[in-house]
Design a protein around this nucleic acid. Sequence first.
DNA 1: TTAAATAATAGTAACTATTACTATTATTAA
DNA 2: TTAATAATAGTAATAGTTACTATTATTTAA
Lengths: 133, 133
Amino acid sequence: MTRRHSTQKGMIKDALARLDHPTAAEVYEEIRKIYPQISLGTVYRNLNLMAGDGEILRLPFSGAPDRFDPNVREHFHVMCSRCGRIFDTNHTIPPGLITQIDHAVEACTGVKVESRVMIFKGICAACQPAGQT
Amino acid sequence: MTRRHSTQKGMIKDALARLDHPTAAEVYEEIRKIYPQISLGTVYRNLNLMAGDGEILRLPFSGAPDRFDPNVREHFHVMCSRCGRIFDTNHTIPPGLITQIDHAVEACTGVKVESRVMIFKGICAACQPAGQT
DNA sequence: TTAAATAATAGTAACTATTACTATTATTAA
DNA sequence: TTAATAATAGTAATAGTTACTATTATTTAA
């Protein structure tokens, strides 16, 4: 099961870089503009392979399709509950905070934490009522 | 649209208390043992109503059905990636840590955080290789 | 440089989780 | 006690995703 190159795989990577946390369907539609015969199954299969290989992240959202992120550096996601836009956190989140939470979780559950999904919800700057930011 | 009582609703609450973070399907099967004519739609509708009213929590898991939790106190969830069991954190998680993370997220994204989904993954005590806990 | 081995593809069918629809039943407030 | 209507069972429909299959493309090695 050694990996092989394919044109489609390259297009999927490019689409991920161009789009902002797209769903599989959004990647599919983007590629269809220039390569209409691509199959949705191909998009899913490649996204799953890449996610399995740790090349990209698969982000779960309750009651909505999963989204994909080519940025695999440790960071978190924030969704505006008004407009639905997804924001990335950056390097300014102190890694120590995460370590502290991991430890607290381990202390009270006995589970050795290996990873975490943290998705924050709130109102983004653009959606805040005027004069309240 | 005022809420009315129903036998089914009571059974769903009981099942939630008895089971451990069940899926809608698990609630349905549990109730079917004693009330075979219950409908899966009824289970979903009531779980959604309760979640909407803040009476219970709906927990999203990537690539798996949502789970429901009658405990609405602020706490987090830890899933053992070996056995799949879900653990609750308890009151020993310092709330200050969460506030600090919220602030850090707000500082770098401009999003006023209102809620967060945090699901941790790791290996639970029972699944740890012997003599390593 | 071909040829054999097989990974990847397009297209479609199937599946799982969830919601929507509808005729009927049950609850509730007057 | 009955009228108004929320809730139900049963079923159909939907959305997201995966599985299947015959064909095509990539790769490795002769």
